[in-house]
Design a protein around this nucleic acid. Structure first.
Length: 476
RNA sequence: GGCGGCGUAGCCAAGCGGCUAAGGCGGAGGUCUGCAAAACCUCUAUUCAGCGGUUCAAUUCCGCUCGCCGCCUCCA
């Protein structure tokens, strides 16, 4: 199947042709580790996870690099202000970042390089740019000269003339630049940097913002690689500058496909500090939202479309998952011998085809999910005529595992029910069979007191819930 | 001011030249059920922000208007 992605530079969808056949190399913009990720950051990471999982789904070997930006104005300022070493400041934030990824079932990238560990590579790249004449030193700073790079602005569609108009310039900060659009590759040490500084041929200082990504991506993925992603806000200036410095240094095209995720809105509004809606995952979990439903919600909208995050939407996502769970439950408790019916085989095949075709078309997850729900409806229709047999249940479960390689929210870990609880459930089942309803209800009360909700189904089985999460379906 | 995106049912959201405009949530009926719940079934947009144009044919292409949003030096 031909995968196609919307490439931001060409502004159209283009068939994905990896540079190295059978392998996709991607650089996904990761967190700046000065504070915990908010839900908008996480949306981008989920998009990148979807991309990665989809590439693997289509049989490609994936090498994903996600940078941890630990040198920037904010990390340095905080480090200096609190008198804490940079690494000491960022370590716990990085730890919580990985915890969030785990909670949202985001797959780990192959490499998580930190800027602070790549100073030599950064310096080498800057030297290359100086040698080729694309960069110049002024005082203790090294700048990239955008005027010497004629293709500048291709990605963002901005040209230097347009950029020159209507923008205020902080004259103090940029007075040593030849052109105010020039950006720093190396920043000479200033008082505010505290002890965040490295020696270099250009003097003591620290890297600029964009250069780390060029240095680290080239180190791990090669001077030219397949995919680079990030939030739309990175298009300009970050990615534009990355292209400029990378292409200028190597003469190669750098990145073949640029993919950007649209921003998340919260209750229809842009997230901002002043609105207090920059929720972290922890904030949401404290309010009782399930990470699984959050993942589903963040995943379910197309990545190039703004997504409005509301509690109601998380609720709706949870309900949608439940509909998918119900069929999975039915499949896993199916009984009876014999071969799978053709009708069951057929609906699975149809869903399989639609699912992968949708994903191959620029990660059209909404359409892919629709294929799943169509399957659910069809399966129930078939099930009503005659319950699923074991072969059919197995086929459906298989398919669930197959699509969950991409969705990452369908198959949940089996939860152990304490024997004591299971015993009570079975006792109650017997009492119900004996029509001793008062005693059965008493046990249900007792279980509710222990945090387990019991739902009877019309097949005689029961479903156990705890903390709003479906735990198990115990067959009669 | 420059560059770009979006406006599809109560809400979310696909489709982007031609079969009855996917799917989810919610809602309304129904089936099942000791109860409670869950689950399942059916229904829920004569129409795609508005107005023009191109075309045999437009939600899909073009233009204008209205509304919302993003970027324009360190915000994913």
């Amino acid at each position: 199947m031909t995968i196609q992605f919307y490439d931001a530079r060409r502004r159209r969808k283009a068939p994905f042709e990896p540079l190295h056949p059978g392998e996709a190399r991607l650089y996904t913009c990761g967190p700046t580790v000065y504070k915990d990720a908010h839900i908008g950051n996480l949306r981008t990471y989920i998009f990148e996870d979807l991309l990665r999982r989809t590439l693997k789904f289509f049989g490609l070997k994936v090498v994903q690099v996600m940078n941890l930006t630990d040198i920037d104005d904010k990390t340095i300022r905080q480090s200096h202000a609190s008198g804490v070493a940079l690494k000491t400041l960022t370590a716990p934030i990085i730890e919580r970042f990985f915890r969030d990824l785990k909670l949202l079932n985001i797959e780990r990238a192959e490499i998580y390089p930190a800027a602070t560990d790549h100073i030599p590579e950064i310096i080498a790249l800057i030297e290359r740019l100086l040698a080729k004449g694309y960069a110049y030193q002024a005082e203790n700073n090294v700048y990239f000269s955008v005027e010497r790079f004629p293709e500048y602005g291709q990605l963002s569609g901005m040209n230097l003339q347009a950029l020159a108009r209507g923008v205020r310039i902080d004259a103090d900060e940029y007075e040593d630049k030849e052109n105010f659009r020039d950006f720093a590759l190396w920043k000479g040490w200033t008082q505010e940097d505290g002890d965040v500084a490295w020696d270099s041929p250009f003097g003591r200082g620290r890297p600029g913002w964009h250069i780390e990504c060029s240095a680290m991506s080239m180190k791990y993925l090669g001077e030219e690689f397949d995919i680079h992603t990030g939030g739309v806000d990175n298009i300009f200036p970050h990615h534009e500058n990355e292209i400029a410095q990378s292409v200028a240094a190597t003469g190669k095209s750098f990145v073949r496909y640029w993919l950007h995720s649209a921003h998340l809105l919260v209750n229809g509004e842009k997230m901002s500090k002043s609105l207090g809606n920059q929720w972290t995952l922890s904030d949401l979990l404290e309010r009782g939202l399930s990470p699984r439903a959050i993942r589903y919600l963040l995943l379910s909208g197309h990545y190039r479309q703004q997504l409005n995050f509301t509690f109601e939407a998380v609720q709706a996502a949870g309900a949608a998952l439940q509909r998918l769970d119900t069929l999975h439950q039915a499949a896993s408790t199916a009984e009876g011998d014999g071969p799978a019916r053709d009708s069951v085989r057929r609906i699975i095949e149809t869903a399989r085809n639609k699912f992968s075709a949708a994903l191959a078309d620029d990660l059209n997850i909404s359409e892919a999910l629709a294929a799943l729900f169509d399957l659910v409806a069809e399966a129930h229709r078939i099930r009503r005529e005659m319950p699923l047999n074991r072969a059919e249940g197995f086929a459906l479960q298989n398919f669930w595992h197959y699509v969950d390689r991409v969705i990452g929210a369908l198959i949940t870990d089996e939860v152990e029910i304490p024997t004591e609880i299971e015993q009570l459930v079975h006792n109650r089942m017997r009492l119900r069979t004996d029509r001793k309803y008062a005693e059965a209800d008493a046990i249900r009360q007792e279980l509710a007191g222990k945090g387990y909700q019991i739902d009877d189904t019309n097949q005689g089985s029961v479903i156990i819930w705890a903390k709003g999460r479906k735990l198990v379906n115990i067959p009669h």
